[in-house]
């Protein structure tokens, strides 16, 4: 297999994205990328990477075995609902703080 980015670089990007998008303190912004969207980003990136051309190029079919992806949009909607509820709780909690 050729044409794949050097491991260090791609590995590093995954590490950075994981931390910067999925960890780290959340303080609601005015411009709502929405916490939701940021949380969903991991999934978005997966979908992005899973584009057919890219997948063919990489010679992999992992999405077929990934329940998140193969069950499609319904899952995203459920995830979105779950995150919305969570966001509501967090906002209530932070409003309540003196």
């Amino acid at each position: 297999m050729t044409g794949i980015a050097p491991r260090n670089e791609s590995d590093g990007l995954a590490d950075v994205l994981e931390r910067v998008l999925d960890k780290g303190l959340v303080i609601a912004g005015d411009i709502q990328v929405n916490l939701l969207d940021i949380e969903l980003l991991t999934i978005k990136i997966r979908l992005l990477v899973a584009s057919v051309d890219k997948a063919k190029e990489m010679g992999i079919d992992w999405w077929e075995h990934d329940p998140t992806l193969s069950s499609g949009e319904r899952n995203l909607v459920e995830e979105n609902e779950r995150l919305r509820r969570r966001l509501g709780e967090l906002e209530t909690a932070s409003e309540a703080e003196p």
Partner: peptide
Amino acid sequence: QDPALSGVK
């Protein structure tokens, strides 16, 4: 991590 993102299979 997802192998597609990390590049590690």
